[in-house]
Amino acid sequence: MLYDINVKLAFHYSDEVMQVKNRLEELRKERGILQEDLAAALEVSRQTIGSLENGRYNPSIILAFKIARYFGMTIEEIFIYEEETKC
């Protein structure tokens, strides 16, 4: 599956760069859902949805499950964890 990755969160540990990317904005827009409605469905604030979408915040595993269930997908289909070694 080809991911249209629009969000990157990077963590630096020694020489490794760990990134968590997500497709939340893409999936939400595909379904024509407003941030407010998604926030209400997941029982989080609208700002949290905004932060998740622009990559400033990584969700807890519980919120990740809630998001996955809401979209009827697996966590891996929405959140992508990558490890890269610094050059």
Binding site: A40, V44, S45, Q47, T48, S51, L63
Partner: peptide
């Protein structure tokens, strides 16, 4: 309640 319990908040 949502604002208070929101995990990011």
């Amino acid at each position: 309640e949502i604002e208070f319990n929101d995990e990011r908040n």
